[in-house]
Design a protein around this nucleic acid. Structure first.
Lengths: 216, 216
DNA sequence: AACCGTCTCCCCCGCGTGGGGGAAGCTCAG
DNA sequence: CTGAGCTTCCCCCACGCGGGGGAGACGGTT
């Protein structure tokens, strides 16, 4: 029997992409799609998916809320795999509290998406996006802050803060009195650890995670 | 008699830069520097500057607050020229309410800095940073929203929102079903209107102005 | 009808950015 | 001492980004 999957994302392009990836697998089967958290309960009741791929950002009812309600009201709730753009610590916390079984970055490669669905389908948890998970598995350390700063080193934190202040690499280099090459290394590490693609997304993640806050 | 200027900025590099620029002018004279809003009142009392170059972001007492207190408690208050990194509408509003005479972008060229100080010193107001001011002067329109969105057009607002979601130009083009060239045009217009250098700073400005908000 | 603003698309060009490596010196824990 | 982690700097390279132009089409206002 193949694994039944429900896709919940307000972006049709993402839904199509996920469906294409998942339906290409003989052991996976997309049984329904929803564009909003409000549509989830009836679809779950009708199709009884084992796994729900849930976006966090949606109009009206977001993924965290939808997950919370789903797991609270259902007798045999499906496993929820939360999809997010950023390896965001706040989301990690909120989604865990809501009962999510795992995380998936939107930028994950198809093979990672497929594997993530299989993992949660067989009852295991996938507490971190692939990239982060690899880091945790490889280096397996967590500092006193726990997850607060996604285990950025002190220097990387400084660099992220300056990125979030709008500084370019040469400007950061001047500020920290190091070479531009060094800054590039730190920036690259920050991008990898946060699971984002470019500095703009890193800054967004910094704001969304509360690493930096508006005003002040 | 030369114009006495007080520089208030928590960043020493900025202070040095401003002092260098201003002291190079025969008609301008930096009489003191402060790194925090709390230091301002005594320095103003002692040196009686005609113009205070005030940063908005400072520890403890920020520039808006310092401006408000300064103008409220002094009999012959100096003119306050607020320095900010972004042509941010919230700041425009707050600083105007606080009594600031003008705005200055940190990225302004030395000649613009000097001219701005001269303008406010002779009692005129400089309500917008040079870039914005040019726009206002050239096109001189303000829509129903007033200043809320820095007079971004609807399309430009959409583009900024997608930028703040971490999308690249090609991704935005796909989302809006237009060409990448078109997106580049909009992005360029947004950067100009916000008075910022790159998309990262645009996203920061979007967060700082409340155009987009963390979480959700 | 003429104008303006917006949205659309195009050209060219420089350069910062980000990914792929590697390598050195340092500190600290085992 | 040995190794791991952090920080520093270097190489190469592809490409997205941003600035400088220009231009056509549409809708609204004057």
């Amino acid at each position: 029997m193949s694994v039944a999957v429900l896709i919940v994302d307000d972006d049709e392009l993402v839904r199509i992409g996920l469906r294409t990836i998942l339906d290409a697998q003989p052991d996976l089967r997309v049984v329904a799609e929803a564009a909003d958290g409000a549509e989830v309960p009836p679809l779950v009741a009708r199709h009884r998916p084992q796994v729900v791929l849930m976006d966090v950002r949606m109009p009206r009812i977001d993924g965290i809320q939808a997950t919370r309600r789903l797991l609270a009201t259902s007798a045999e709730p499906p496993r929820v795999l939360v999809i997010t753009t950023f390896a965001n610590d706040e989301y990690v916390y909120d989604a865990l509290r809501a009962g999510a079984s795992g995380f998936l970055l939107k930028r994950a490669r198809p093979a990672e998406v497929v594997e993530a669905v299989r993992v949660v389908a067989r009852g295991e948890s996938l507490l971190f996006p692939a990239a982060i998970r690899r880091l945790v598995g490889a280096y397996g350390r967590r500092n006193a802050d726990g997850l607060r700063t996604a285990r950025l080193t002190e220097r990387e934190g400084e660099v992220l803060r300056l990125m979030a202040a709008g500084l370019s690499n040469p400007e950061i280099a001047a500020r920290l009195v190091v070479g531009v090459e060094t800054v590039k290394t730190h920036v690259g590490n920050v991008l990898t650890k946060l699971g984002v693609r470019d500095r703009t997304q890193a800054v967004i993640a910094a704001y969304e995670s509360g690493f930096v806050t508006p005003a002040g």
